[in-house]
Design a protein around this nucleic acid. Sequence first.
DNA 1: ATGGAAGACAGTGTATACAGAGAAGGTGAT
DNA 2: ATCACCTTCTCTGTATACACTGTCTTCCAT
Lengths: 215, 215
Amino acid sequence: MRASERAYTALREDIIEWRLLPGTVLAEVEQSERLGVSRTPLREALGRLTAEGLTTAGGRGVVVTDISLEDIDELFELREILEGKAAALAAVRGDPSIFTRLQHELLRAPELLSGEDPARHDYYALVNQLDDALDAAITNSYLAQAMRSLRVHLVRVRRLASDDVARLCAAAAEHAAIAEAIAAGNSRLAEAATTVHLHRSLSHIKATHREENHG
Amino acid sequence: MRASERAYTALREDIIEWRLLPGTVLAEVEQSERLGVSRTPLREALGRLTAEGLTTAGGRGVVVTDISLEDIDELFELREILEGKAAALAAVRGDPSIFTRLQHELLRAPELLSGEDPARHDYYALVNQLDDALDAAITNSYLAQAMRSLRVHLVRVRRLASDDVARLCAAAAEHAAIAEAIAAGNSRLAEAATTVHLHRSLSHIKATHREENHG
DNA sequence: ATGGAAGACAGTGTATACAGAGAAGGTGAT
DNA sequence: ATCACCTTCTCTGTATACACTGTCTTCCAT
């Protein structure tokens, strides 16, 4: 694996997992020594992170981007636009059998969550399958690219919320509803189901965020 | 100005103006010598171009991205999603007086086009003002960023179409209609006017593109 | 004549050295 | 004591040298 790739992956993980907090300055010599790569591949990694919006190159050095509550609102506003339309397009263009299968698997998600995996690996893999199926069904690389770039920030926000089993079960049911609507070819229902899901996710995130601030 | 910035700007111009055609391989040594910069800043420029989608880093070297007719359809599909919603949001959140002023200036656009500027500089500056006003009005940096990244590709496509005065006058009238709807606070009308405008633009581009292929 | 292997070459990926700019701290003068 | 200026240091931006990988060509053997 290339050194720049390693540096990029490591820094991205550190930012998403909130080990590198917003406002942290990523000095080139410091980070290159920490990650065991030279400055050149590190600069490439920082460039990619800045292009994704995880860092900003304003003035002196590269700084980890902050995510405020207003940012989360804006993030979900765009998410609703993109994913709502994507679900509608998938309902028209997608292969129903794929989404029917995903719907049934999502309805069995509570079984996955009762397992002892603290990282909920199987659960998130299943949700990623739905995302991938959406990307493939819409047959629009620009839209898919826009959604991919948003998901990076979303994962970062998600780490702020408490992933309790109750919410994840509810989210799986909402995902199943989206898959069902797509499989049925009902674009308006698919878009509506996506809107509902995103609003519930946002409410959950905000609620847990408020709790943390008051705790 | 930094060398990497110069290289980025020059390459970007060359790609947008179709001086570097799709499929061209941008070898590092070759381009660094041509642009008079070292390989290091050139690599940074290529990285930014690749992040924007103007080039791809697949396998051997960096290659200028191709734009097919299907790509244009996908591009405008996403554009309609983003700009339609942006117009609707601007109608709710924007300052009406700004868009009223832009509406009136756009209605006088035919005067600008009757001038002898072959680059239509004043005209495009006015259209850019509308884009900037939209960006500011929506108060959503993620949506604004998504639209900005699309506009790069749009400018590239626009260079394919013949910018005849008739079409530009019609486009100005359509822009004025969008501004009017935003100023009136009518979000549904603003979105509809945007949809109409984009469909007409797309039809025009496709028509001229067909002509060129048959000519 | 054809296939395979080896060497040369081209081109990227990485490291390091050097230069310039900006900030911080200290010192002198008022 | 405070302010201004100068020095110095640290950091980024750039250039260049080196290494490695993949490919193409050529030569030898069958």
